[in-house]
Simulated assay, not measured.
Amino acid sequence: MPEGHSVHRIARQFARNFVGRRVQLSSPQGRFVEGAAVLDGHVMTQARAVGKQMFLEFDNGLWLRVHLGMYGAWDFAGEILMDPTIASANGRMGQTNQRGTELGTGSGTTESQAADAVLDSAGENSLRSIGAPRRTRVRMAEQEKEIDRLETFPPEPVGQVRVRLLTDTVCADLRGPTACQVLDAAEVQAVIDKAGPDPLLDDSAAAEDRFTAVVRRKPTPIGLLLMDQSVVSGIGNVYRAELLFRAGVNPHAPGKSLAEDTVRGLWRDWAHLLTIGVETGQMMTMDDLARADWVLAMKNRADRHWVYKREGLPCRVCGTHILLEEMGARKLYWCPTCQA
């Protein structure tokens, strides 16, 4: 399932390519004909992400709400413009250390400049694949990659396209979402009100206090609380495992058993890793990497994480074998020594 950084990146691509433009909406698959009809021909006025959900506003006061779920993805096609707030050759991209501070290269070359030339084996570094404008087709889901160059525009729909959004230069096709619905402003606010805080939208002390207070009054294991979108928005299976390892927290510890400083540290580290994820398109959680190791990690997903998908392998810190179990119907990876 796409985690929060992916949805924020998608929303920013909509803001860059669709907001302020009149949009044609259709449902090639036929399952969203009525919803597409009420939005067709209107100007998109806003694109925003809240955790794992995205909301697109139109000038008739209605919104398109999308939750990609496990299988959803957007394909952008056409003369795609790069969102300037996502790292590019002129931007910056940090790596992390255990305290969640940002590190420079120390060489006069920014991390983002180097990243522009680093693609992994799946072509997932979207700094290159989303960079444009040029006529191309790009997949944006949990992993992002350029699919092909276009000879004609708009391209024929491929697969079961729930909804297509089309301007003169760019189209976006949605496949396989868990939710795709038209809401009015009050309904959108009701959905947002049920969601936990998203540090990319609100990094205030009040948001941190809200998260901390909820976690510290719950008997629920912290490994479940971090996946509860009413507690905190955007965290999925990868970030859950990595955040808990980085904090040295046992995933089975009840929320109410954790020290206040520990909970606040989880919130701040989530804000930090989410920012890196949005800038880079990668869930990079490794720390203090030398330049060569950083490039290797950007190329290979297996080298980006402390514990995720490393079951049976020695912990990178203590050497204990990483455990794999099920928690909340999802796979949980953790070190029984570092997170005792």
Rank of each mutant, 00 (worst) to 15 (best):
S6E: 09
S6L: 06
H8V: 12
I10G: 03
F14T: 02
A15V: 06
N17R: 01
G20F: 07
G20C: 06
R22A: 13
Q24N: 10
S26T: 08
S27I: 04
G30D: 11
F32V: 04
V33L: 09
G35I: 00
V38K: 15
D40G: 07
D40W: 12
G41A: 02
H42M: 06
T45G: 12
Q46W: 01
A47G: 14
D59H: 12
N60L: 10
R65S: 03
V66N: 02
L68M: 14
G69A: 04
W74A: 12
D75P: 04
D75M: 10
A87V: 10
A89M: 11
R92H: 15
Q95I: 06
G100Q: 15
L103S: 12
G106L: 06
G106Y: 10
S107K: 06
S107L: 11
E111A: 14
A115T: 05
D116V: 12
D120E: 00
S121N: 11
G123R: 09
G123P: 11
L127A: 05
R135W: 00
E146Y: 03
L150K: 14
E151C: 04
E156D: 01
E156A: 09
G159V: 07
Q160H: 03
L166G: 09
L166H: 03
R175Q: 10
T178K: 15
A179D: 08
Q181N: 12
D184K: 01
V188H: 00
A190E: 13
V191E: 13
I192P: 00
G196C: 11
P199T: 05
A207F: 01
D209K: 03
T212Y: 06
L225I: 08
V232N: 02
G236Y: 01
H252C: 11
D261T: 14
R264K: 15
R268F: 02
W270Y: 14
Q282N: 02
M284H: 05
A290K: 07
R304D: 11
Y308E: 08
R310H: 15
P314L: 03
T320W: 05
L324R: 15
G328Q: 01
W334P: 11
T337V: 09
T337P: 08
Q339E: 10
A340I: 09
